[in-house]
Amino acid sequence: MAKAYWVGAYRSVSNPDALAAYAKLAGPAITAGGGRFLARGVPSQIYEAGLDQRTVLIEFDSVEHARTVHDSPAYQEALAALAGGAERDIRIIEGV
């Protein structure tokens, strides 16, 4: 079974307090579900049409594990705390 990667890019943050509340809940929800944070932060270097956006990369054992964490009550609570405080692009992709 191929690993899966949850990739999140933050287009904008309109409410830093909501983002902090989200992060406080989301991190434990993700790690409890088996997610492993591989990278997070702003780009060190941008090439081609890249955007200067905060990016988060999380590894899971499978796409199903990543979906299960995203849909879990604990992560949904984190999303409720974010309450539109950031515009993001979240993708789950299967590893090769």
Results as ranks from 00 to 15, higher is better:
I46G: 08
A26Y: 01
R54I: 02
A9P: 00
A78D: 04
R67C: 05
E64D: 15
Q76V: 05
S72T: 09
Q45T: 15
K24W: 04
F60S: 03
V13Y: 00
F37R: 01
H65E: 13
V13C: 09
T55Q: 05
G34N: 04
A78N: 08
P73L: 13
A20V: 04
E59Y: 02
R67I: 06
T68P: 00
G8Q: 09
L38Q: 11
I30P: 00
A29R: 06
Y5I: 10
R11P: 00
R36G: 02
A66C: 10
T31E: 13
Y47K: 15
L79V: 14
A83L: 07
R36T: 14
P16A: 02
R88F: 10
A18I: 11
A9R: 10
T55A: 03
T68F: 09
L19S: 10
H65N: 14
A66T: 09
G35I: 01
D61H: 06
K24Q: 15
E87G: 06
M1C: 10
S62P: 01
S62M: 01
D89N: 12
A29Y: 01
R40E: 12
R88D: 06
S62L: 11
Y10E: 11
V63H: 13
I93V: 14
R91T: 13
G84A: 06
S62K: 07
V69P: 00
V63D: 07
S12G: 00
E48M: 14
H70A: 08
I90W: 07
V96I: 13
L51M: 06
A2W: 05
D52L: 11
A49P: 04
R11T: 05
A23P: 00
I90M: 14
G27H: 08
I58T: 04
Y5P: 07
L57H: 00
A18H: 09
G34R: 11
Y47W: 14
L79Q: 14
V69A: 02
G34V: 03
A2R: 11
Y47C: 09
F37Q: 02
S72Y: 08
K3V: 03
R36H: 10
